[in-house]
């Protein structure tokens, strides 16, 4: 039996003006790295944001490590504790320094002592290559550094799944690599990841499967080499021609 950590069943999201998700089914196995690609408006970000309930589904359900998002036994906060999220715009807290950004949730949500949280944060900062920036404020960091802090902040909660919503889209080109390197390390370390991105290099290096979405539906799912080199669907082919 497969060990699914994220199970998405019949996910629908109706924004009123547009149907962003039209019944999406997707399972992610523990330790798997799944990339979600697709044109803008295809519903890929909505799908990702549904996993930790930043978007509420209109119909369908999602389980994260057995905990459902809606219905009996639903526990949204539990799910949010177990999923880390990295945003396109970083969303660091500008009034807190790097250390405070990372330790806020472990202290307030997990009840860690300040000392424990800071020790852990120090290790994570070393991991993302920013050990010397603990006292800096977000406004003093480059985009790439901000995003690496954001990754460390999410990891500090020791999540079972990491969600990345276009993590490199707001970055200047020369900073994309430093963030992707951290993400690749993370993937190699066995972290379960769902990533919305168009970074094909990262896809080939780190992804187990690539999901192509269009108009609120999953069109095709395949390992990166197969999906990029031998797409089965016409819509996939068309999209890949645009971005490659």
């Amino acid at each position: 039996m497969k060990d699914n950590i994220v199970e998405i069943k019949g996910a629908e999201k109706d924004f009123g003006v547009v149907m962003a998700l039209k019944g999406v089914n997707l399972n992610v196995e523990r330790g798997e790295v799944v990339l979600i690609i697709g044109p803008s408006g295809s519903g890929k970000s909505t799908l990702l944001r549904s996993v930790n309930h930043l978007e509420a589904l209109t119909a369908g359900n999602i389980h994260v490590d057995g905990t459902p998002l809606t219905g009996e036994g639903a526990d949204i906060r539990q799910i949010r504790e177990e999923t880390g999220m990295v945003f396109q715009d970083f969303n660091l807290f500008p009034h807190m320094n790097v250390m405070e950004n990372i330790t806020l949730a472990p202290i307030k949500v997990k009840g860690l002592s300040k000392k424990q949280a800071e020790k852990k944060a120090g290790e994570l900062l070393k991991k993302v290559g920013l050990a010397d920036r603990a006292k800096a404020y977000p406004g003093q960091l480059s985009g790439g550094q901000k995003q690496r802090v954001a990754i460390a902040r999410a990891l500090a909660m020791e999540p079972k799944v990491m969600l990345f919503d276009e993590p490199t889209s707001a970055l200047d080109p020369e900073m994309v690599k430093e963030v992707l390197d951290v993400m690749t390390d993370l993937a190699k370390g066995g972290m379960t990841m769902m990533v919305v991105t168009h970074e094909m290099g990262f896809a080939r290096a780190a992804a187990d499967r690539v999901v192509f979405m269009d108009e609120g539906e999953i069109v095709e799912v395949a390992p990166p080499a197969q999906l990029f080199d031998h797409p089965q669907e016409e819509r996939t082919r068309k999209f890949l021609k645009h971005i490659l």
């Binding site: 930043l54 715009d89 660091l92 949500v109 997990k110």
Partner: peptide
Amino acid sequence: PKGQMEAAMALGLTRGQALRYVILPQ
């Protein structure tokens, strides 16, 4: 920005905690 509340909630903070530690100081 809306992303501040989202980031706080995504970390597992309650709405009240997010207001107190993230939104109101700003």
